[in-house]
Amino acid sequence: MTDTILETAGLTREFSGFVAVDGVSLRVETGTIHALIGPNGAGKTTCFNLLTNFLTPTRGTIKFKGEDITGMKPAMVARRGLVRSFQISAVFPHLTALENVRLALQRARGASFDFWRPETALNVYNDRALELLHDVGLPDLGNAVVADLPYGQKRALEIATTLALDPEMMLLDEPTAGMAHGDVDTIVQLIKRIRKGRTILMVEHNLSVVEGLCDTITVLTRGRILAEGDYATVSKNPEVIAAYLGSSDA
């Protein structure tokens, strides 16, 4: 019954001789949480940039819901329901939390080229925006300027903004990076709540997060897939231990 939502074949990206991503063939099944792990410089973020077409692959193809999206404009990929977050917290710092989420909800009206209409035209999205803020644990913060929020709340806000597009598939680039322990747990709970009806592909460094959360794990090193499977399988793989987990024993 499982079917594939995202599939890459021989995905390769070279940067003037350096191969960052080398023939990655990835299959993400619908409705799963899939993790992409690997040591620094393994090509995880490059992979994300390729999947969302922020970078063009040197070789290889990307299929989303059976449709070839290789070389499509990033905005068009987003409109098809494949929405990403960023490693550095991607918020709009000088807007309020409500405006951040509303900017995503505003997509529902199509292109917003209407420069002659007052901003109040967007107030119809306020309720939904507040609801989303509530869902990610940021109630009552609608009018807060985002630059003033602590880091954990910015990450939560970013997820709220991504959720506002109601994407079929979310790509989360290190959602817990740089977070305090308590905040990590909040985000993990949040991801568990939002996974319903969605597929999530995430890059993650924190293995305890991956362990409890992800159905499938793909390990990347030097741009290649080293191993794939559930946490139990992957964590026992001697090559993975050597390449990645082993570094902590040394």
Binding site: A75, A90, V91, F92, L95, S112, R117, E119
Partner: peptide, 20 residues
């Protein structure tokens, strides 16, 4: 305007605006 709101998004974080 709704248009201006997108402009501010671009000013604040263009890649994020694209990703939306």
């Amino acid at each position: 305007s709704p248009f201006g709101q997108v402009l501010k998004g671009i000013r604040e974080n263009e890649p994020r605006t694209t990703s939306l």
